[in-house]
């Protein structure tokens, strides 16, 4: 395609459109329209461009109008939601899913934290000697410890009803079944929660409790299974 290289043809066409051509020029113009296809194309494009230009200008004007009203449509929402990050408002479904997951995680965390602490409040006396029972119970909840039968036959010392002086070291003894871990619990009568607990690793099957650790009173002790308890008295 050959493009007009000078302004002369354009000027001629504009004068033709304005009806300003002389008789000779008009004749020459008509002749060129027949003989010169490039010139004919140019005249056609000029006429066509006028209509297309109107459409294009209308299109952009309407587009600007729509854009302006579109902004107006969302302007009040922006005011209300300006504290919410834009990506949250744009990706609504992802945001809802993320909030849902967060809520579930929060509830799960609350259940995990609150439940053990309500069940096992550590007695306030001898606090520094008491093993954190939450740690003791945790593996059992996970199912990491197998339950072995620690019935009364396997709890050896102190014997049931034994009276022990406060000034003596107390030796606790039991039978060790295998190499799994055990938890020794000591509970004061009338109190629900243990005053002492400790993890004992097998094959060790005894524990020495220093003299004066327990205050005078009646106590029970058991290893792992609280169904089978032995009682002793500190005087």
């Amino acid at each position: 395609m050959k493009f007009p290289e000078t302004n002369r043809d354009i000027d001629l066409i504009e004068r033709y459109l304005d009806g300003e051509l002389t008789f000779e020029e008009q004749q020459s113009f008509d002749k060129r329209m027949i003989d010169d296809p490039v010139f004919k194309d140019l005249v056609g494009a000029r006429k066509e461009s006028s209509e297309l230009w109107l459409k294009a200008r209308t299109y952009y004007t309407v587009k600007e109008e729509v854009n302006r009203i579109h902004k107006m449509k969302f302007s009040h929402k922006k005011n209300i939601l300006r504290i919410v990050p834009s990506y949250l408002t744009q990706h609504k479904y992802y945001s809802i899913a993320a909030i849902g997951i967060l809520l579930i995680a929060l509830i799960a965390a609350l259940l995990f934290i609150v439940r053990p602490s309500q069940k096992f409040k550590i007695a306030d006396n001898d606090r520094n000697k008491i093993y954190d029972v939450r740690k003791a119970i945790k593996p059992a909840e996970k199912g990491e410890i197998k339950i072995y039968k620690y019935d009364l036959n396997n709890l050896l010392k102190p014997d049931n009803g034994e009276v022990i002086s406060r000034n003596k070291v107390i030796r606790f003894e039991w039978r060790c079944f295998d190499n799994s871990d055990r938890y020794l619990f000591i509970t004061k009568r009338g109190e629900e929660l243990p005053v002492f607990s400790r993890l004992i690793l097998c094959p060790k099957s005894f524990m020495l409790l220093p003299a004066g650790t327990l205050k005078p009173g009646v106590y029970t002790w058991y290893v792992t299974d609280e169904k089978f308890q032995r009682t002793f008295t500190i005087k």
Partner: peptide, 16 residues
């Protein structure tokens, strides 16, 4: 006239 000639020429050249 000159300015319009220049502009329409550019438009038509690009259009074609």
């Amino acid at each position: 006239r000159q300015r319009f000639g220049r502009c329409i020429q550019a438009l038509l050249a690009e259009y074609q």
